[in-house]
Amino acid sequence: MKSMKLNDLCFFYHSGARARCVVGVVTVSQEWYKTDGEGEGVVDVKEVGTMRRMVDLKEMKKDDGLKGWGFV
């Protein structure tokens, strides 16, 4: 998250127990900042849009066009 820059477009990934998939696209509205004194931090994002359908991580890993992306 520290490498995310202002206005970067990012996938919004739902990591719940039942569904692990991309559900939307967001843009970075505030770069990484600390939330406490122990190095924990967050990145603020703003919604760009929702996916027409949820896309599973397994499906994304099979897509050659996404090879080399941070989480793929």
Score class of each variant (00 low, 15 high):
K5E: 08
T50Q: 15
K67H: 13
G41V: 08
L57S: 08
M51Y: 05
G16W: 11
K58P: 01
V28H: 02
E31T: 05
R18D: 15
M54H: 15
M4V: 05
E47K: 10
D63I: 07
R53S: 14
Y33C: 06
S15Y: 10
R20L: 04
W69D: 10
F71Y: 12
L6D: 07
K34A: 15
E47W: 11
D36A: 02
M51F: 11
L6Y: 09
D8P: 02
V45G: 00
K46L: 06
E47M: 10
L66A: 04
E59H: 09
S15T: 13
V55A: 13
M60T: 02
R53G: 05
T50G: 12
Y13H: 13
R18E: 15
M60D: 01
G70P: 04
S15E: 04
F71T: 02
G24K: 06
D63Q: 06
S3W: 09
S3R: 11
K62V: 05
S29P: 03
V26L: 03
V72H: 06
V72Y: 12
V25D: 01
V22K: 04
G16A: 03
M1L: 06
V48N: 01
F12H: 07
C10R: 02
V42M: 13
E59T: 15
T35A: 01
G16V: 03
V28Q: 01
V43D: 00
V55D: 03
V25M: 14
E59Q: 12
N7T: 07
C10M: 10
F12K: 11
V55M: 14
V23P: 01
E40T: 15
V42K: 10
Y13I: 13
F12C: 06
T50L: 15
V72W: 12
G49C: 13
G16S: 07
V23S: 06
T35S: 07
K61F: 07
K67L: 04
F71W: 14
G49K: 08
E38L: 11
S3T: 07
E47F: 07
K62E: 10
G65E: 12
N7W: 03
G70K: 10
D8F: 02
G39R: 06
W69P: 00
M1P: 09
C21V: 13
T35H: 03
G68Y: 02
W32F: 15
G68Q: 09
W32M: 04
V25W: 10
D44F: 00
K67G: 01
G49E: 02
Y33K: 09
S29C: 07
D8I: 05
K5R: 11
C21I: 03
N7Y: 08
R52C: 12
G49R: 10
M51S: 07
M51H: 03
K2P: 00
G41Y: 06
M1A: 09
V48R: 11
L66G: 03
Q30C: 08
V28C: 04
S29K: 05
G24I: 02
L6P: 00
E40Y: 13
D63M: 08
K67S: 09
V26R: 00
V72A: 08
R52H: 14
V22M: 14
D36I: 04
K62D: 05
G70I: 13
K2H: 04
E38D: 14
S3P: 00
E40L: 11
N7V: 00
R20M: 14
S15D: 11
Y33P: 03
L9G: 01
V28S: 00
S3Y: 08
G70T: 11
S29Y: 00
R20A: 09
S15I: 13
R52Y: 14
R18Q: 13
E47C: 03
L6E: 05
